[in-house]
């Protein structure tokens, strides 16, 4: 009897927890969806994710298989609704597999950048003694123009997509570190941090369990916006021949390959160009929308 009642209580507790956690996320999502532009962006991102996940299923052809008899077919050609490139490869299939690469590189570089940036930001915001040193290092990274820094790193490490991820992530670190540091500086003055100190909590516990959860909002916004930059930079680096190497289907590389045929087959540059534009636009508007949706001042009962 006692056992069943505690079990029942545990279930109720679990439901309550579920409800609370859901509430925050659902509330943010609801506010985000009210923003029409952000909704549009979300749909594009969703489509990209689906295409990337099920690329082999969406693509009718092998993206790197050449078929010279069907080279440079225009849009709407039979069997190739987006045409083919100069080697006769299906543009739609390449686009779908390119979605996979740009998403992976975006997530990878933003993820790595976040790890570095959050760590540096937390440390420099919390430990006053290390603040000066870390921030000067961050200033140093800021002094390089982003794409130049990326090129420098690729020049050192060699051209490959993995190195592009590393290069772009390093370039994301300084901005992220500054954003996190700013949040930490304001949060660490809160009385509940003082309360944890008076309880005898260690610095690591305070940083990870109390400060970090309270600066997730700016981090989420930063990560979303950064996805757009990362995808654009990947395309730019591949366009310059520093990222994906032929015959990999990558949007920037596709534009680079297509530019020689701009007058005979303009779709080879325009189609991947539109893909890049849409995705970058989508991440930017979703980031903007998230910033508004996560703004505590717009939340009346928090």
């Amino acid at each position: 009897m006692a056992g069943s009642s505690t079990l029942a209580r545990q279930q109720v507790d679990a439901q309550n927890n579920q409800r609370k956690k859901e509430k925050m996320v659902v509330k943010t999502m609801k506010r985000l969806i009210k923003n029409k532009l952000a909704l549009f962006g979300l749909i594009i991102i969703f489509v990209q994710i689906i295409l990337a996940l099920f690329a082999p299923w969406f693509a009718a052809y092998d993206p790197i298989k050449q078929d010279l008899t069907n080279a440079e077919l225009g849009i709407g050609a039979e069997g190739h609704w987006l045409g083919t490139d100069n080697y006769g490869r299906d543009v739609w299939s390449r686009l779908v597999f390119g979605a996979r690469i740009s998403l992976l590189v975006g997530i990878g570089s933003v993820g790595l950048g976040l790890i570095g940036g959050i760590t540096l930001g937390l440390i420099s915001g919390y430990f006053k003694k290390l603040d000066g040193i870390i921030m000067r290092f961050v200033d140093l990274l800021f002094a390089f123009p982003g794409i130049l820094l990326a090129m420098l790193i690729i020049a050192m490490l060699g051209t490959s997509l993995v190195n592009v991820v590393i290069a772009i992530s390093i370039w994301s670190i300084p901005t992220c570190a500054r954003i996190v540091r700013g949040s930490v500086l304001s949060i660490k003055k809160q009385e509940y941090i003082m309360a944890m100190k008076s309880l005898g909590a260690g610095n690591l516990r305070i940083l990870v369990k109390h400060i970090l959860p309270n600066c997730t909002a700016p981090i989420i916004v930063f990560a979303t916006m950064r996805m757009a930059t990362a995808i654009l930079s990947t395309a730019a680096l591949s366009f310059l021949g520093l990222g994906a190497q032929p015959p990999t289907a990558e949007w920037g590389a596709m534009i680079a390959a297509g530019q020689d045929y701009m007058f005979t087959s303009p779709h080879l540059t325009i189609v991947p160009g539109i893909a890049i534009m849409l995705v970058v636009f989508a991440f930017n508007v979703v980031g903007d929308g998230l910033r508004d949706a996560l703004d505590p001042n717009m939340d009346l009962d928090y």
């Binding site: 009385e191 509940y192 309360a195 944890m196 008076s198 005898g200 109390h210």
Partner: peptide, 21 residues
């Protein structure tokens, strides 16, 4: 010694972490 000495804070709205149950 922290076990032996504790503090009650002024602002009950600021002294609890808003994101923790």
């Amino acid at each position: 010694y922290k076990k032996e000495m504790q503090m009650i804070f002024q602002d009950p709205y600021a002294s609890l972490n808003p994101r923790r149950r």
